[in-house]
Design a protein around this nucleic acid. Sequence first.
RNA 1: GUGAGCUUAGCUCAGUUGGUUAGAGUGCCAGGUUGUGGCCCUGGAGGUCGUGGGUUCGAUUCCCAUAGCUCACCCCA
Length: 427
Amino acid sequence: MKIQAPKGTRDILPSEIHRWQYVSNVFAGLCDCFGYKEIRIPVFEHTELFQRGVGDTTDIVQKEMYTFDDKGGRSVTLRPEGTAGVVRSYIENGMYSLPQPIKLYYDITAYRYENVQKGRYREFHQFGVEALGAAGPEIDVEIISILYMFFEKLGLKQTGLNINSIGCPACRKPYLEKLKEYFRPLLNTLCADCNNRFEKNPLRIIDCKNEGCKRFIEGAPLQLDNLCDECRIHFAGLKAGLENLGINYKIDSKIVRGLDYYTRTVFEFVSEKGGSQGTICGGGRYDGLVEMCGGPSVPGIGFALGVERLLMELDIQGVTIEEPQAPDIYIATLGQKAVDLAMDMVYKLRGCGVKAETDLMGRSLKAQMKYADKKRFSYTIVIGDDEIEAGKGVLKDMRTGDQKDVSLDSVVDRLKNQVKERDAAAR
RNA sequence: GUGAGCUUAGCUCAGUUGGUUAGAGUGCCAGGUUGUGGCCCUGGAGGUCGUGGGUUCGAUUCCCAUAGCUCACCCCA
């Protein structure tokens, strides 16, 4: 069998790595401004964490987890998302006794076993943020504003924000009864999936895409219209907070979110043209999760953003990310003495932060020049026996083709300064 | 889990109505007389035509199976 990357995984190659590094850096910089610190959590956790944290009735837990027994007979699972692991770490490391709220972000891979298609992979990348300890709508607004500013910084203009409230345990119970009452007489006309959902998670019926079911969903009671006073006030606070910052949103009363732990605020950022995988980012409040995972009763809110989908959206909206700066100087050599000298020179230059290379293939001068050209070096220096004897090298500007002699003693210092000045000017 | 399309060189693709050594462009390597890139020219390396089986004198081509890729459903990032 030919060895190749497993289904649903892919290499991020040197030719595209700058796009990934760019969005990661922008995200990290922004989180830093907002006072969020990076957390790095394990790629795998005990399976039980996700069963409890993500929810037994979710598709993720029921059919999408990469679960296996390790050699000690423990069942472990590759993380299908980041929140559960962060919450586990919050509890395990006693973060509730640090100044609250705890504000964290992460840049991770996640794993779900499902059929691949556009914008969906088995190994995929997420940027995420979690804020624990704050219950009011202000933190909801802050979390959403991170994303809003992030998209703005990246130059994404057609990315819409949808928000909803799915209530708390107190108001969800009577609502679910109401919902079931509504759907009960319709059960034999609803699809098989919905019949399944009816007992396990009736909320998800509202999300059904089946045309036959959609007709009835239109008239179904919505959680948004059946919130308790506290939830209603919270949602009003969220809306007012977003308006205060000038953040546009739409209320989408059908957002449910596929994970069990969400309470009250749920939201997503969607692409206008992204097609079936148009959700770039999803998030919400999870006030019961920490307690459910064995910690104290602490409220939380967060989001996860799909990096693959973000990069797709940048393409769709025509946002290009510039290639990193070209390398500075290539030292072309003729003869062993020149090779030795060049090795010493590039070593010194690199020590000063200058991007320098020399021949490692024993190639002809012409081939070396071709290499320098293809790799887009700004300058080359040619060194041969003549130059060493004269203590001079030929410095060539690869853009203009101009050449001049330079003293080999001073050239390292001169280049160093030149690059420093250029970098300062760029800033 | 279900359905559709695709699979020939590193990449993008031709092609063979079944018949000797399977092609182009691009990329890579080397040359185009003394020590200089880009344009141009020449040459070279590189393919068990996804894999396994069947039909046939003969299969890269036809048939079947299988894997992978791509897309869609479900669901999600």
